[in-house]
């Protein structure tokens, strides 16, 4: 069986600037991988390129998700296929309520997967149940999407979207930043609830602390647009102590 996500020698640029410089990464179903790495090393860029954001030139390599070549799929088709990105900086959308947004997204994904729309009552029940589990006020469903939400509320809202859409692979881009300690636990529980033998996760973080709650199978270090080292959970502990000094040098050496 093919891997859930298989990236090989991926190269991507914005304009003249090459950001991903030959990145390899394989995630099997059931695994949780963490990516750590210095600011500007290309972690968010990787998450955008995987999710199908416009504006990047894929100049080399390949990305396969669940047996499909991602290059053939639009952003919305990737979401329907089961890819989910929890944004590092979730967008504010004035005039669109969180409820309308969640319902439109859920039904778009269901339709794309050949299922019927969810009826209004079931949707409401599900949205309430999932948002309460994340410690969110019912009121936040009625508010305009992310408008005036605190940093932590926006991150919880990302996890709510994940819980509603039930992706096969969730990429969490610094979902822990901006969360207080209690919120971190609640969000981690929400994420762990999604773990299953069929699903995978890619957790981008700067802090070992998140990985105490979401235990990764593999930890990668990304520097200068590449995965420069991979190991077990102990690698995160090591990085916490020694920082990225070695990898910065290595990154430059490979450039």
């Amino acid at each position: 069986m093919s891997a859930l996500l298989e990236i090989s020698n991926l190269q991507a640029a914005i304009g003249d600037k090459t950001i991903l410089k030959g990145l390899d990464l394989t995630i099997q179903a059931g695994e949780v991988h963490a990516i750590m790495g210095p600011n500007g090393s290309g972690k968010s860029t990787l998450s955008y390129v995987l999710s199908g954001k416009d504006g990047y030139d894929i100049t080399g390599g390949s990305m396969h998700f669940d047996g499909q070549d991602l290059a053939d799929l639009q952003a919305e088709e990737r979401a329907i296929a089961g890819l989910f990105l929890a944004f590092q900086y979730p967008l504010e959308i004035p005039g669109v309520t969180n409820m309308t947004f969640l319902k439109t997204a859920l039904n778009a994904v269901r339709r794309g997967r050949g299922e019927d729309d969810m009826d209004a009552a079931s949707f409401l029940r599900l949205a309430r149940e999932k948002s309460r589990a994340l410690g969110m006020d019912d009121d936040m469903l009625k508010r305009q999407l992310n408008v005036g939400f605190s940093g932590g509320e926006k991150k919880r809202n990302e996890i709510l979207q994940m819980a509603m859409l039930e992706p096969k692979l969730a990429i969490l881009d610094e979902t822990d930043s901006g969360l207080d300690i209690d919120a971190l636990k609640i969000v981690a529980e929400g994420v762990n609830a999604q773990r299953s033998p069929e699903r995978g996760m890619l957790v981008i973080t700067h802090y070992q602390r998140l990985l105490d709650f979401i235990k990764p199978d593999v930890v990668h270090v990304m520097a200068n647009g590449r995965i420069v080292r991979s190991g077990g959970p102990e690698l995160a502990l090591e990085l916490e102590k020694s920082g990225y000094a070695d990898y910065r040098a290595e990154g430059v050496a490979h450039a």
Partner: peptide, 20 residues
């Protein structure tokens, strides 16, 4: 992009942003 990354096709996403 945010809306499309949630499975909403481009035309519907535009429509949602305009109505918003």
């Amino acid at each position: 992009f945010f809306l499309r990354a949630r499975g909403i096709d481009e035309a519907s996403a535009r429509q949602l942003l305009i109505s918003g």
